[in-house]
Design a protein around this nucleic acid. Structure first.
Lengths: 215, 215
DNA sequence: TGTACATCAGTGAACGCGCGTTCACTGATGTAC
DNA sequence: TGTACATCAGTGAACGCGCGTTCACTGATGTAC
């Protein structure tokens, strides 16, 4: 692998070259192609044009760097979902808009998983054992994480009278499971040999199932 | 880690001690706690009471051993699903029985994922890049793999008149996605802090969603 | 405005580790005569 | 029934590799006087 020449050192300022940021960027790049295991501290320093132990000025361990990469990946997912939501046209009936919102969340999720499988897998990789803070990760433009974006879409369905309030509680888990499972099977599992067209069609059917199944 | 003493050498016969099987068993044990990355060739040989390179008489590489472990894990999942199916009481209306069959497949899947998360993750880990043979893995007692067991349950729903035939095609993907996603979120993802009781309840709601959503 | 000094980001060298894999070997077993 | 021999599963030793992490250091920068 041509890891040595991939990134020109740059580093025009000697001190205060933002090494922390450079290591994070390198880590994200590694995660992008290769997933969480590919986030190797020494390789990140190599790409930043710096000696390996220099990383320890900014991250206490390789795992801390990975954590930062994970947060960045989760934020990127949130941004992808927000982009899908932003593309919705307004000005139709609230019920339709609410339904479209939920679909947009799911579509953004699936699109991101396919476009950035390495980051997707990294975002959902678990440190070693269980850890604190199950949900509140870094966020995108809206300040909401993917889970919260999904929740907001479901709230909209309730407000529009589409989803009965008594079915709202825990509905995130249902929708999330279906979409997440499809994403995992497609990018990393037995469905990885499906064609993009098939993935698109079945992905939409998964969303159909969610829409019909949670009400 | 007390890896040295975990398994008595046994190996009463010198030649023809079934090292291949012993390595596979050790590999499965490693995968059980630790997932696919824990399937380390040297550790497997250690547990089999044999020198590291002895493994190469039976597996061409560490990856070949991992493949075998993967197949075994998939077969174990099939067995778990079959056990759930075998527990169904017969002698009720075909429609009810068919619905119960689909539920049993899902329940077995989720139970296995929780009881053996390491094996579950191993079963669905992908070698390196894409590979052939997306579905046909080793099977359990019935000779069917998990995917085929799911398909059979769906066929039963069609036969019983519950699921319209035109909705049958590709329905595996929908049900599978929902259940698989929930399993992944619970064992390895943001839902891992849920209590067993919550997991049980939400798991059943996921199955409710599938049942309602695929028809 | 000029000098002395403390700070601390990045250096250089080294560590121990466990991994997968290779090579030439040995010696118990099964088989042929 | 007994002996010679081929087989080949497991041995012993070694390899190169890249990893995370440690230690004592250095020298450009910002600050105080």
């Amino acid at each position: 692998m041509p890891s040595v020449k991939t990134r020109a050192p740059k580093r025009n300022t000697y001190r205060h070259g933002d090494l922390r940021q450079a290591l994070l960027a390198a880590g994200v790049e590694l995660a992008r192609n290769g997933g969480p295991d590919a986030v190797v501290l020494r390789e990140a320093t190599r790409r930043a044009g710096v000696v390996p132990n220099a990383a320890y000025r900014h991250y206490a361990s390789r795992d801390q760097l990975l954590q930062a990469v994970r947060s960045a990946a989760m934020a990127a997912l949130a941004v992808a979902i927000e982009a899908e939501l932003a593309g919705l046209r307004r000005g139709r009936k609230p019920a339709d808009f609410a339904r479209a919102s939920l679909r947009a969340v799911g579509t953004g999720y699936l699109r991101f998983a396919q476009a950035e499988p390495g980051l997707f897998r990294t975002a959902f990789s678990v440190p070693d054992a269980l850890q604190g803070a199950p949900v509140p990760e870094k966020s995108g433009n809206s300040g909401l994480n993917p889970f919260q974006l999904l929740g907001a879409a479901l709230d909209r369905l309730v407000d529009a009278g589409v989803l009965p309030p008594q079915r709202r509680l825990g509905a995130e888990y249902l929708a999330w499971s279906a979409v997440h499972g499809f994403a995992m099977l497609v990018i990393d599992g037995p469905l990885r040999s499906l064609s993009p067209a098939q993935i698109e069609v079945i992905g939409q059917r998964v969303l159909d199932m969610v829409e019909k199944g949670i009400e």
